[in-house]
Amino acid sequence: MKQNNDYMEKMLARKTPSTGGGFSAEGMKRAEALMALYPVKRSALIPMCHLAQGEHGWLTEECIEEIAALVGVSPAEVSGTASFYDMLHLEPVGQYVISVCTNIACMLAGAYELLEAVEERLGIASGQTDKDMRFTLEEAECLGACDTAPCLQVNSRFFGPMNSESFDKLITDLASGALAGVVPPHGVLSRVERVFSLTTKGATDAAQMDTTDAGQK
């Protein structure tokens, strides 16, 4: 699955979310291949949204139109469906989307104090993106990392337990690029890719994908 890796690497090498545009030529190819896996076209809607978010960091208007055409629904149905899910973004996001868990385990461990510290450090409130499009902050429900409460998520990577000091360090590391190999660009999910390889080439490729998935290194 050479092509897979190339594409993944290209997505992982992307520095910042784009401001707009549709699928790249390669992305479109993958979208069409993804479509072929679903006997009912509509079923591909969410995976397609992930694919689009992988390319741009968020769901651009152009991508919504393209997905609608591919999946055979209206653009309103695509954006309506996507709006149901917190992890699909319909507005431009920063390079790093920081989701602070405030669910019960984290809350008891000081999540709201952490959130306050993060807001102060970034100078933005929950739900906002800073001016230079570096950080987007959001409050999240349980991230499933209660053992490291209070935890937060940067793009799709977990960090915790966190406090204001460790968060300061995290921000410095993110800014300096020290975490470049750990934190993928926002939106790049290997899950979509894995499903893709499983059904096309069989389990061996899937295993390969797992080991070569940059996010897991």
């Binding site: 919504i64 653009p75 309103a76 149905e77 309506g80 709006s83 149901f84």
Partner: peptide, 27 residues
Amino acid sequence: AAEVAGEPQIDFAGRGDMTMVATSPTR
């Protein structure tokens, strides 16, 4: 819009008590 007119230009967006009827951002 979907069944009778065949033009699903509106659909539900959001969830829970924030569910609303919405168009796509561009149309």
